[in-house]
């Protein structure tokens, strides 16, 4: 099995290569190039302006495949390159922004998986109770309301009307420490994880109800096991598999969601960086940022395989 997973993990590399090619071609297909963004239109229009030398200086004159392999080989050597717009090193940008995004995504992931699974369990065990109906309402709201809208409402209520939480940002100016961080991350993480919470809750409820009707749950009861053991050990252990799969599949959506949530809450992460880079045609930055996202998607699907094998004895890769 170790062999299979080593192979499976290494296969991420060629997939990543294919993904980067697709992103590169996609970027070329969009109209305009970085120069139209960098150089004022009047200057471009003037007769004695030497566009070719500019292109040459930036390496944009070479054929596309040369540009691509130049960039790709550089990346393999750890040279992530520089922003075309302001010349900052992408590695430095990532160093500042990636931790913020990961922090937000991790907080959202933890909140939504714990909340979603626990509420879903309660709903399934107390099916058709007031708690179940309440959860259903929350679930429908969570699945149907777009997160940017939810974010704006949350800011309006909790920051402006009630003044409980800061409007945005990651830390107050000149402040540090866990508590301040927690105060800032709470609202964006809850908003970001809300739809995932709702989806997990509905899904946990559904799979649990399905599993609770299975014969082996009756077998567990026929042994005289206490009810909590029947539910947590025999039923939940079986319902957990599909729930974790859903969680892993939704992981990329969570990362993608940060792009919007970060701009709503002024969170200094990758999202804002990607938005700016796309509008500026800042190829190197877009490439690296999308590649990171693609990497996370591939990693999530790898995790799905790994967890399936660990949780389900029927799945073995030999």
């Amino acid at each position: 099995m170790l062999k299979y997973f080593t192979f499976r993990f290494l296969s991420i590399i060629p997939m990543l290569f294919v993904v980067t090619i697709i992103i590169f071609i996609g970027l070329q297909l969009t109209p305009g190039d970085p120069l139209t963004y960098l150089i004022p239109p009047e200057l471009l229009a003037s007769a004695n302006f030497d566009l070719a030398s500019y292109k040459k200086a930036m390496g944009l004159d070479a054929p596309l495949y040369v540009q691509f392999f130049r960039w790709f080989s550089g990346m393999l050597q750890g040279k992530l390159g520089y922003s075309l717009v302001d010349g900052t090193s992408i590695a430095t940008m990532l160093g500042h922004r990636l931790p913020a995004t990961l922090e937000l995504a991790a907080a959202a992931l933890i909140i939504s998986s714990v909340l979603g699974i626990v509420l879903g369990l309660i709903s399934s065990v107390r099916q058709n109770s007031a708690a179940d109906y309440g959860n259903t309402v929350i679930g429908i709201i969570g699945i149907s309301i777009p997160e940017f809208f939810l974010g704006i409402i949350a800011i309006q209520i909790f920051s402006i009307k009630l003044g409980w939480l800061p409007v945005g940002g990651r830390l107050d100016y000149g402040e540090s420490g866990f508590l301040s961080l927690l105060k800032h991350v709470a609202m964006p993480a809850l908003v970001l994880g809300f739809s995932l919470t709702a989806a997990l809750m509905r899904y946990t409820r559904g799979t649990m109800l399905d599993v609770l009707g299975k014969d082996y749950v009756k077998t567990a009861r026929s042994k005289g096991l206490p009810e909590w053991k029947v539910i947590v050990k025999h039923a939940f252990r079986n319902a957990l598999m599909p729930v974790i799969l859903l969680l892993c599949f939704r992981l990329p959506m969570l990362i993608g969601g940060t792009v919007i949530i970060e701009s709503v809450f002024g969170w200094p992460g990758m999202g804002g960086m990607l938005l700016n880079a796309v509008s500026a045609k800042d190829y190197p930055v877009v490439m690296i940022a999308t590649m990171l996202t693609a990497f996370m998607v591939l990693l999530a699907s790898f995790l799905v395989d790994l967890l399936t094998a660990l949780l389900d004895p029927r799945v073995r890769f030999d």
Partner: peptide, 14 residues
Amino acid sequence: MIFQDPMASLNPVF
């Protein structure tokens, strides 16, 4: 107790 369907009455993960 013994149930009808032995395929379904044993828990697949233990």
